[in-house]
């Protein structure tokens, strides 16, 4: 889906979303039942670098400071983090962390945070822009990944056809919405033909746990069978004598 199609489908009541520097977008939209909401994002498959991460974090912090506690929607169509010497020299890890912190803080302060993925998002950009909200929705065209299969093949030195066939039997490493839904990373995957505005309204109206339940989600969906139990055992040991 194009950005315009996504905006029209999510916000039929109108929006003020405009492009900004570094592929970022920001504005507001009106949602039936939820009133005005904040919309930010990175569009056009632009790699997420220090400039973009800083702008997005700034928008999020502005919204928190304003104190209206309206929902924050993060639209995501990026590639990966910007891969360049200059980005790393200036401390890209701090900029991506700052964005993750700002989104986490907004949630702590009572904003509902929803990332909506409608294009690719890989690696560090996936962590900072997509996985840092309370809810991650995948739309048609979403292509989340940690790393693409040819790159995994290069690094692990396993033939691509073997990886492709393994990917059919386990959701643990392969890119795509389906495996990331199974592991609990993607909360919901919406299909073409769904009423996106209605589904968003349901998400925004619903309760959400203040705690991170993605390990339970992964267990229920049979995509991450061990994580929740291992974490529970260590937490129990750490909390007792």
């Amino acid at each position: 889906m194009t950005l315009d199609e996504v905006l029209a489908a999510l916000f039929p009541g109108g929006h003020t979303v405009q492009p900004g520097p570094f592929g970022t977008i920001d504005g507001t939209a009106r949602i039936k039942g939820a009133g005005e909401i904040i919309v930010v994002g990175i569009a056009g498959g632009t790699p997420l670098g220090i400039g973009g991460a800083l702008l997005l974090a700034g928008h999020v912090l502005d919204a928190v400071r304003a104190g209206r506690k309206e929902p924050i929607i993060v639209l995501v169509d990026t590639s990966s983090q910007a891969m360049a010497r200059r980005e790393e020299l200036l401390g890209l890890n701090e900029y991506l962390a700052h964005l993750a912190k700002s989104l986490a803080f907004a949630a702590m302060e009572g904003h509902r945070t929803v990332s909506v993925l409608y294009g690719p998002a890989a690696a560090g950009a996936f962590i900072a822009a997509a996985l840092s909200s309370q809810i991650l929705v995948a739309l048609p065209g979403a292509a989340p990944s940690v790393m693409d299969l040819p790159s995994i093949s290069r690094v692990t030195k396993l033939p691509l056809d073997r990886l492709a066939s393994l990917a059919q039997t386990t959701p643990i490493f392969a890119p795509g919405v389906v495996p990331l839904l199974a592991t609990g990373a993607v909360t919901e995957a919406w299909q073409a033909g769904d009423d996106f505005a209605a589904r968003l309204a349901v998400l925004l109206a619903g309760d959400h746990a203040a705690v991170d339940t993605r390990d339970q989600l992964g267990f229920e969906r049979h995509g991450r069978l061990l994580a929740g139990e291992v974490a529970r055992q260590v937490a129990a040991a750490a909390a007792h004598d």
Partner: peptide, 17 residues
């Protein structure tokens, strides 16, 4: 991220953050 378990590893990183 351990690429052989890329999705579980990436998600664990987000959970840890």
């Amino acid at each position: 991220v351990r690429l052989q378990e890329a999705n579980a590893g990436e998600l664990a990183i987000s959970e840890v953050i």
